[in-house]
Amino acid sequence: MAGLLDGLPQDTLPLVYLVSGVLFIVGLRKLTHPRTAEQGNLISATGMALAVGVTVLWFEILEPLVLGAALLVGAGIGTWLAVSVETTEMPQLIGVFNGFGGGASALVAGAELVGQVGALGASGLSATATGAAAVTGLIGAVTFCGSLVAAGKLHGIYENPIHYPAENAIKVGVLSVAVSAGLVLVTRIDLVPMGELVAPYWALLAVASVLGVLLVVPIGGADMPVVIALLNAFSGLAAASTGFVLNNSVLIIAGTLVGASGLILTRIMCRSMNRSLVNVLFGGHGGPTATSGAEAD
């Protein structure tokens, strides 16, 4: 707590985060109405600028040049992509951005584990931190790889569903390997030595990345908007569980808002196609199978 805002009381940071959280809520609310949607986006952007700005100024940044460079590179790439994109290509770009968000959450949780082990040793990790990190890694890596595959399908690289033998059994198998890696991380059974690198976490990331690809590859291109909506909710949940790792309120609030609203939106989109989410995700052929969920709003 020795950044540029040194003289301010301790509670300033969480209070600014509270303001940001409120701006996200108001922005999200306005995003759901045609007339106020543009304003809502600006309000939510203000909340983001406030939260990021105060964080940069608040914490003692030991390597300001590195941080500045990273922010500049990211902002440059983001601006360039957003400005140069054709209107018709926007959905896949959203998919790519979404993947990056999930990937960032997974990296942050990993970096925090590595940092804590470096400072306190492996025994210094709390079960809350490792458990939340395992959840972040699983969701974040699935979001990263799944979103990139989904964006590729929307871009028309290979739109057809790709099927492989014993699909659902393989998915369940890979998921259980990932969950086992997470359990090793939390319980610290020495199946895999932790080391300074926190090896089980990166094993978890690798397996979860494979899972992300396996989940999205069998789904047809026409169903990708629903998949992107669901993965968007996932990236929010990944951010929220990163908040549990770092004990950060605004990460939890904003991430959970995105997670919950994204899940509802996914359901609405499925219902408007007259299909269930399970049918979209595991139904395979992309053919419309009538479900009874067609109640009117």
Binding site: M48, A51, A104, A239, L251, G255, L257, V258
Partner: peptide, 9 residues
């Protein structure tokens, strides 16, 4: 819009 918010990470 919500995707941008999830960049809170």
């Amino acid at each position: 819009g919500t995707n941008a918010i999830s960049g809170i990470t």
